[in-house]
Amino acid sequence: MAFTITCPVCGIRRGYEFRFGGEDKGPMPPEESLASETWCEYVHMNNCIAGIQKEWWFHRDGCGSWFTIYRDTTTNQQVENR
């Protein structure tokens, strides 16, 4: 495959310039509200969707921004925001 990602700052670039940052799970819940299980759910557990997911990427060899994209994990192609 020859994966490309569109960085909001730098435009379309080779996928290897970026680093994957996990599924978009929202901000960390407040520390006081957490139990071991809920902490683990947030930190370690994934949906592992075979399909379109929202996820974080970092433009490591570029502008250095973190941003989210939608990607189809079954084709490894960035897709339009649904």
Partner: peptide, 12 residues
């Protein structure tokens, strides 16, 4: 390091 700090503040 930069990636790490920015990652952990990405929602803020």
């Amino acid at each position: 390091t930069i990636e790490w700090i920015r990652y952990h503040t990405r929602y803020d």
